[in-house]
């Protein structure tokens, strides 16, 4: 039981739904296709712009900065 609890806590360090957004936003658009078409590039940029407005305190991974 203790092992399960420890594993749960460890996993939750990556983020818990409802407690904020933990994954880089650009990952939302990856793997829809092998390559990113123009409209998903535009939407990815929009998502990152929205993130800066909604969560200005969120640290920016190098790829999104």
């Amino acid at each position: 039981m203790e092992q399960v609890k420890a594993a749960t806590k460890d996993a939750e360090k990556n983020g818990v739904l409802g407690h904020g957004l933990h994954h880089p936003f650009h990952t939302m658009f990856e793997d829809v296709f092998e390559d990113l078409p123009w409209h998903l590039k535009e939407q990815s940029e929009q998502a990152i712009r929205e993130r800066r407005i909604k969560w200005p305190e969120w640290s920016e991974p190098a790829k999104e900065a």
Partner: peptide, 8 residues
Amino acid sequence: FDTPYPHS
């Protein structure tokens, strides 16, 4: 957005 509905 034009993606599958993302979970996290």
